[in-house]
């Protein structure tokens, strides 16, 4: 009911009369087709190379498609690298840091958008400013902290770093941007009921802000999933190492196993695509309700 109220002014784009859109649609199809081709070509390369037999990989690389396909690569790859375990690590770390970023980010976003707290603008800008540092230099000293807290080679170390450095600032900003547009009378109904601020956040604001929370969550998940700098230094064994670092094993000191590398990369890409397909409906309907204008 509440959500409907927020999304009230909004059947949005579909409210544009169709006949005025024909030019826009032709343009859109052209832009999207070009981008689709440019995006599917790399995927095609990845698939083609992942199917090249190891025996004459060097000669096969000169062809766009392998002269004979070797599907066994996808099995052999698993025997060289514990892909399933590394995948699980990735899911735990990315999922954990997403949850941490959301749990801590939502109250902060509330405070920054709905309360006139001390130094509101400074906080907002300060959080964003932490994003301006390059992770490859941050890691030198981040390692000190994690070593002292005994968090190297643990999931927690990476979950905290990924959440704190990669995702929290964006999570804060995007959810705060959404909450700022939630009508005030909703808040007042709770104030009348005498609910605490915490109740207000989790019972009233979170359900309404779900769309922006989903966007922020996807962002947090992907950022952590793609992290390299932190995981490389902190995940000191395969027991905690996420998949993108593990894949790097196929870049040996002297040789590159292109076929396994590409096969494992496709495996590392799939979970994110699946996640996106699952939340896409939410994302879209959410966006319709007006996340960050």
């Amino acid at each position: 009911m509440i959500a409907a109220k927020v999304g009230d002014g909004a059947s949005r784009i579909s409210r544009i009369p169709r006949h005025t859109l024909s030019g826009d649609r032709v343009f859109s199809y052209i832009v999207l087709s070009v981008f689709t081709v440019l995006t599917l070509f790399p995927i095609f390369i990845m698939i083609a190379v992942s199917l090249m037999p190891s025996r004459h990989l060097s000669s096969d690389l000169y062809h766009l498609w392998p002269t004979n396909i070797d599907l066994r690569n996808y099995l052999l790859m698993w025997s060289q690298l514990p892909v399933a375990h590394l995948l699980l690590n990735s899911v735990i770390i990315a999922g954990g840091s997403t949850i941490l970023a959301l749990l801590t980010g939502i109250p902060a976003a509330f405070a920054l958008s709905r309360m006139n707290i001390v130094g509101r603008k400074i906080w907002l800008f300060g959080f964003l400013a932490t994003q301006l540092f390059s992770p490859s230099i941050i890691i030198v000293s981040a390692y000190h902290v994690m070593a002292i807290a005994h968090l190297t080679d643990t999931y927690w170390g990476l979950i905290i770093l990924d959440a704190g450095f990669y995702s929290l600032p964006f999570v804060l900003w995007s959810i705060a941007g959404f909450m700022r547009h939630i009508p005030r009378e909703l808040e007042e109904t709770v104030d009348v009921d005498g609910g605490s601020t915490w109740t207000k956040i989790w019972r009233v604001f979170v359900p309404i802000a779900i769309p922006s929370i989903v966007v922020a969550g996807v962002y947090a998940f992907i950022q952590s999933w793609n992290d390299f700098a932190f995981a490389l230094t902190l995940a000191t064994s395969q027991s905690t190492m996420p998949l993108p670092i593990g894949i790097y094993s196929f870049m040996g000191a002297y040789q590159i196993q292109w076929n396994y590398l590409m096969g494992a990369s496709l495996v590392a890409t799939l979970p994110v695509l699946i996640l996106f397909l699952i939340v896409q409906k939410r994302l879209v309907s959410g966006m319709l309700a007006g996340s960050i204008k």
Binding site: V140, A147, L232, T233, S237, Y248, S249, G252, A253
Partner: peptide, 23 residues
Amino acid sequence: VHLRVINWSLGHQVLDTEIGGGH
């Protein structure tokens, strides 16, 4: 034995970071 296997191309960085961190 606590083992870690580090990628060669990044080995120097990882080792120096560990040493710098007192580990």
